[in-house]
Simulated scan of single mutants.
Amino acid sequence: MSSIILSPDSSTLLKNIPLAGQLTQRLFTRKEVIEPCSDVMWMIERGAVRTLTWSEEGTFITLGYWGPGDLIGYNLTNLKPYQIECLTSVEVTTVPLHLRHQYIDALIAHIQNSEELLHIINRKPISLRLWEFLVWLSKKFGRNLEQGCLIELYITHQEIAEVLNTTRVTITRLLQEFETAKMLLRHQRRIILYPPDKSLKKS
């Protein structure tokens, strides 16, 4: 099970929100789907979730990965179907909808994160798309080590492929190439990104 560390920025955000300490805390287990609810949002304090939808053919479309300090909720989208799935055990603060004005910074951050991921998904070539996605994950779920930045969230090759609109075989091949090029290290189902001492070629 992944261990997600509450980042300093997330801690500051939570502390600066009025009444946060008076709101209801909830716990969800790994793989649990948070029930649809239109009158509340949730502030993640610990853990990680992903939001997703799916096509009529049953193809999953990942819309985002969210961790400590992120605000999630079914009222943040018009998409149907829409699902919030816990990737780890998750602790949240329940935010009644009438208090949403107190969470404007978190709402803005939600939009910015979604747009950044959308930009990455449309990058070319696929090698650059994958690398920028890994960097994006490291910023949200990373912990600095002596070797580099450990992405503490475990995500399968198939899940990465679904996010980046490619195949699992392509993701596996590119990760092997990145490791050969000393850009990352795979260790116990986790990825460590080495410090950027060279840029990825875009051709």
Rank of each mutant, 00 (worst) to 15 (best):
I5Q: 12
P8Q: 06
D9E: 14
S10N: 04
T12K: 15
L13S: 12
L14P: 00
K15F: 11
L19N: 07
L19I: 05
A20Q: 11
A20T: 09
Q22Y: 10
Q25E: 10
F28N: 04
T29C: 08
R30L: 08
R30K: 15
K31P: 01
V33R: 10
I34S: 11
E35I: 11
E35G: 07
P36G: 08
D39M: 12
V40D: 10
W42C: 04
M43E: 01
I44E: 02
A48C: 13
R50W: 11
R50V: 02
T51A: 07
S55E: 10
E57C: 04
Y65N: 05
W66N: 06
P68F: 13
D70P: 10
I72N: 04
N75E: 14
N75G: 13
L76Q: 13
N78Q: 11
L79W: 06
K80D: 09
K80I: 09
Y82A: 00
T88R: 12
E91M: 09
P96M: 10
L97N: 09
H98A: 05
L99C: 09
Q102E: 14
Y103Q: 02
I104P: 00
I104K: 09
L107W: 06
I108M: 12
A109V: 01
I111V: 11
I111P: 01
I111S: 07
N113G: 09
N113Q: 15
S114P: 00
E115R: 15
L117I: 03
L118H: 13
H119D: 15
I120P: 07
I120F: 12
I121V: 14
N122D: 13
R123G: 00
W131D: 03
W131I: 01
W131H: 07
W136L: 05
K140T: 03
G142Q: 10
N144F: 04
Q147C: 03
Q147T: 12
I151C: 11
E159V: 03
I160Q: 06
L164Q: 04
N165Q: 09
N165K: 07
T166A: 04
T167D: 03
T167G: 03
V169T: 11
T170Y: 05
R173D: 01
L174K: 00
Q176S: 11
Q176N: 12
F178W: 09
E179H: 10
A181S: 07
K182P: 02
L185K: 15
H187C: 02
D197C: 07
K198L: 09
K198E: 11
